[in-house]
């Protein structure tokens, strides 16, 4: 069962949660939310760094450049509209993760690594 992430951001935090006026929230609510992934250097993975609003993918990448790479954080940016991210439900945690608790044999700890093998 997927759940929808609800995120609040600059300008669209509802008034009852201490945000701005309703008029403001209407204007930015139309801008979809995007998740931003930055690769800090060649060879590493893209890492999730946060989210932002933008009208389309092009603007999302430019916004990500301005918001998340101002201090030389990255060399590559991915963006994906937040609505396409599906998350597991925290209520499923017991069924999802706990069965792995007592299955130590799934960890590769029962043999010795030769010293010659590097980067493990």
């Amino acid at each position: 069962m997927n759940i929808r992430l609800t995120k609040y951001y600059y300008g669209d935090i509802p008034e009852e949660k201490g945000g701005g006026s309703a008029a403001k929230s209407e204007s930015t609510a139309n801008w979809p939310l995007w998740e931003v992934f930055i690769r800090s250097k060649q060879g590493l993975d893209h890492k999730h760094v946060g989210s932002l609003h933008a009208t389309d993918a092009k603007m999302a990448i430019e916004n990500a450049r301005d918001v998340y790479t101002r201090r030389m954080e990255g060399i590559s940016i991915w963006v994906v509209e937040s609505k396409y991210i599906h998350a597991s439900n925290p209520d499923d945690a017991e069924a999802f993760y706990e069965p792995a608790n007592d299955k130590v044999y799934r960890h590769p700890t029962f043999y010795d690594l030769p010293d010659e093998v590097k980067h493990m």
Binding site: Y10, G11, S27, W31, H53, N63, V67
Partner: peptide
């Protein structure tokens, strides 16, 4: 700015 991201873009 009209939105945080553009506020930052212009002040950059």
């Amino acid at each position: 700015g009209p939105i945080l991201e553009q506020d930052i873009a212009l002040t950059n």
